[in-house]
Amino acid sequence: MLRMFTPISGTATLEVNSYSLKHTAEWFLAPHCSYVSNGRLIWAAAALGLMIADPDDAGPNLLIGVSEREHDYVRRMVGPGQTRPHSDHYCPAGYAHLQAALAQAATGKPITGRWVRPAPVNEVAAFHAWLILQADRNDPVGDLANDYSSGVRDGDHRIARTPDELLTIFRELSHSPEAYDAVVSAIAEWTRTLPSPQPIRTERIGGDSHYHEG
């Protein structure tokens, strides 16, 4: 189960504790496994060579070097009473494979082949990166960027790689006219930074004001 997460390396701060991970493992592996001890979880992390840290006053719980965002995604997907994320950008690379392997093992079929972690791909999403950097501004665009960043972090919506994708996200979510105005302002500001921007369609204008949402 731990292999499906992206390992934390270098000087990154570890944020996932073993006690939380052990419960996530129990929920994910149910009904094939009903109990995972804290010690066994730590042993498995050590066997995989994951970073492990001993925080102050943590008792028997240690910090395990797996992605906190990916762990939160899995916990929300399998944990009882959790609100499921609406986007999969923090889904661990091995999540679907492990689910399929567990289902296959439950039927008595042998598992052949070994899952190989795909090489990381650094996807260029310049508009997303720019919008995230605006979150500290004290203006409507800053408020928009802060809400957008929180939505991406919490899995409430997907990443807007382009201005058009941000408009699509806003059409899918409930929002105020002021929030939409902030979206238009942000897109206009972003467009002015480009040497030759592509046209962007905002809300379509209807033939009658009664048939247009604003």
Rank of each mutant, 00 (worst) to 15 (best):
Q99K: 13
V78S: 02
V36L: 09
V66E: 15
K22E: 14
A135Y: 01
P177N: 01
H210C: 05
E189L: 12
A46N: 15
P195N: 02
W27N: 09
F5R: 06
H212D: 14
L50A: 14
H97S: 05
I159T: 04
P177E: 08
A106R: 10
H157V: 01
S196G: 09
L194W: 06
E213S: 08
I42M: 07
P92R: 09
D72T: 14
S67W: 09
V66K: 12
D156I: 07
A125F: 08
N38I: 09
K22N: 10
D143V: 06
G39P: 02
D143S: 04
R40E: 15
T193Y: 01
A45E: 10
V36W: 13
Q82H: 12
R40G: 09
T168C: 05
I169H: 06
Y35E: 11
P140K: 01
D88S: 07
F28V: 01
D57L: 12
D56I: 15
G207A: 13
S18Y: 07
G65N: 13
N138P: 02
A12P: 00
G155N: 05
H175G: 11
V74D: 11
A45V: 09
N61W: 03
W130C: 09
H175R: 10
R137C: 06
T107S: 15
D72L: 12
A101R: 15
R161F: 04
N146V: 01
S37Q: 07
W115K: 01
L194I: 08
P118A: 02
N138I: 10
H128A: 10
L29K: 00
D57V: 09
L21Y: 04
M51D: 13
V121P: 02
W43A: 13
M77I: 14
R158D: 15
S174G: 11
T107Y: 14
R158Q: 14
S34D: 14
D208A: 11
N122W: 04
P110I: 06
S196H: 10
T13E: 15
R137L: 10
S209G: 04
D147Y: 01
A44G: 00
A93K: 10
K22D: 09
G108V: 12
H89D: 01
A93R: 13
E172I: 03
Y90A: 07
P60Q: 14
R171E: 13
G113D: 05
V183D: 00
P163C: 12
L98N: 08
V141E: 00
G206Q: 07
P60L: 10
H97P: 02
F5H: 07
P197Y: 00
P55Y: 09
W130T: 12
E70R: 05
D57C: 07
Q82P: 01
M77L: 11
E213N: 08
M1F: 00
G59A: 08
L62S: 02
L102C: 08
G113P: 04
V124C: 11
G142V: 03
L48I: 05
G94N: 01
T24Y: 04
G39R: 08
E213Q: 06
L41R: 05
A125Y: 07
A25L: 08
A145N: 05
A105S: 14
I187H: 00
I132H: 13
H89G: 04
S34M: 07
E189H: 03
G155L: 03
D54N: 09
N61H: 11
N17S: 11
A105C: 03
R171M: 03
